[in-house]
Design a binder for these strands. Structure first.
Lengths: 170, 170
DNA sequence: TATTGTTATACTCTATAACTATA
DNA sequence: TATAGTTATAGAGTATAACAATA
């Protein structure tokens, strides 16, 4: 009967995944009108990982590069990032957070962290850490299925270098 | 500086929340074409909680009732749910999972649980349970009424009034 | 030929607002 | 007047496909 219990756990996890969107939407709601949650995620990744190419950012966001491209254009138009040509490969562009972008990101982080602090006031530090750890691992477990049929979590070292494509599979 | 560390944890949690969408999308991808993930969530809630009104379902989904209404129409057109008039209040309709809907849901659950089983093969039962527990708590901390174990709430004359509305706040 | 990035298009999910029919 | 539900419309977010420039 362990197998049955396990199956039900997976069903329950699927439900929780489908429901967590409500929390995401609430966080997204406090973002300023000219910077959506998607754009904010780009800024956060650029601060966290430093300058990078479009393709690299697409991998980190786990979305198709066409999506990343639109976000980058939106942010560049507003002066929050730079897109300079990569001297090593003229097809590529290096994304770079500008001082203005960094300032904006600080404000966005303040808002979202503030909301979480308010809502999770009764959580212990350890519980928050646990949730982060498990969500990170969840993503890793789903991580590199975009190329090979088999997942391998590969507890990340810093650089997210994998063979996964930034093109959505058919 | 414990406060600083805590702030950074909240920032990290915000990033994880924004990133978990990739997992959701992968689960959604294996759904059949005529039943989107959103519709599947409706079926799952009806099985879990039993017959209910539109407004109740909206609270459980944590979306505006207009969204629920569209899903319900889609499911009813295909014979997966019934929408019978509520004898106690002619404005209301009671949603009810049909046998066909139940059969479909079983297949959907099989698919999503199967995918999770495949991807999370190297997780322990306890880790999966922990993640479920923490995600459930996260939603509860954000005022989401949708919990795992809940019988049909007795909703008599209009007062089960907690916080949530089925109308989106301005 | 393959890859990087861009653009055009379409589809899903969600919210807002206006409407109806009851209460 | 207020509430339950529906519909029309608009806005994010995302994927697919076709394309340009470079490798």
């Amino acid at each position: 009967m362990a197998a049955q219990a396990q199956y039900e756990r997976y069903e329950e996890l699927a439900r929780q995944l489908s429901a967590v969107g409500a929390v995401k939407r609430e966080v997204a709601r406090i973002m300023p009108t000219d910077c959506s949650a998607g754009s904010a995620a780009v800024l956060a990744l650029l601060e966290q990982h430093g300058d990078m190419r479009m393709s690299n950012l697409s991998e980190l966001l786990a979305v198709d590069m066409s999506v990343t491209s639109r976000y980058a254009a939106h942010l560049a138009e507003r002066g929050w990032i730079d897109r300079s040509p990569d001297p090593a490969d003229k097809r590529s562009r290096i994304l770079h957070l500008t001082p203005e972008g960094r300032t904006l990101l600080a404000e966005l982080s303040r808002r979202s962290a503030g909301l979480l602090a308010e809502r999770l006031g009764d959580w212990t530090d350890d519980e928050v850490s646990q949730l982060i750890r498990l969500m990170t691992r969840l993503r890793a477990s789903f991580g590199d299925t975009r190329t090979t049929t088999h997942p391998h979590p590969a507890r990340s070292t810093g650089t997210t270098r994998s063979t996964s494509t930034t093109r959505t599979p058919a």
